[in-house]
Amino acid sequence: MLKFLGSRAIASAISLVGLILLVFFLSRLTGDPTGLYLPLDASEESRNQFREIHGLNDPLLIQFFNYLGDLVRLDFGESIRRSEPAIDVVLRGFGWTLQLAVVTMSLVVVFSIILGSLAAFHVGGVFDRIATFFSLIGASAPDFWIAIVAIVIFSVNLGWVPTSGTGTVWHWILPVSVLFIRPFGLILQIVRGSMITALSSAYVKTARAKGIKNKAIIFVHALRNALLPVITVIGDQAAALLNGAVVVETIFGFPGVGKLMIDSILQRDFTVVMAAIMLTATAIFVMNLVIDILYSILDPRIRY
């Protein structure tokens, strides 16, 4: 197990370095931030001074190695835009995104697993048809459209919840609901399919022959086996949310890391972009590790 964790950490570190390389040079391709930050009539002298302060005058390779050198000391540099450490800006945004992702995914996991399992128990029954109908709509509806329609109906017309921003519990309802729909539909479908297989398996037949109650057959015998493929998809969906639900965060003016990343790219605030990408990449790496560990907990045949 320790050996496995170690090798996974090394593999992730290597891909992180590749990511840094890619993002560093790609973001430089977008152009010189000087023009964006100084007034149009700024003198060449002050432009040079700005470049000097932010290290933009050095050759690209030197900039890169300077950046790496700072990174080793966990110094992510200053935000050009906000003149505070980039990592602080990112952590603030990431905090919001993390909360949003955790709340949404918890609801998704609970509801999709319970409803998907029940749908699988009576395939073709009324409950199964209703669940399948709505989950297919959910899995295929574009979330930006749902977000806008939801604002029109629930905020503008009915006035039940605020249109955007943060502050109260009410502010969370629309973003969470909109983000909930797609992974819920998708995961419910996968739980259902996986449970249908598990429920027709030989060990479920044994459980029925043993006189185990239906509830225990579904939620004890079949579910634990059915969860293995489900967990992979949950991880995938959670990763998408951790990356920042860019569109939804933007529509609802939610100050998460996705919105921060888009803003920083537009402002050529390179240090913030880099820090945000590294933080989310690390978070996704940690989450994948958690999923691997969950796998081995759920299935005793998997040992690392």
Binding site: K205, T206, K210
Partner: peptide
């Protein structure tokens, strides 16, 4: 089932729950 009438099957590996 299982109390008064019990059953065993051909392929015990697939008929025992692996987890």
């Amino acid at each position: 089932n299982g109390c008064r009438i019990a059953m065993i099957f051909q392929d015990p590996l697939s008929h025992l729950n692996p987890v």
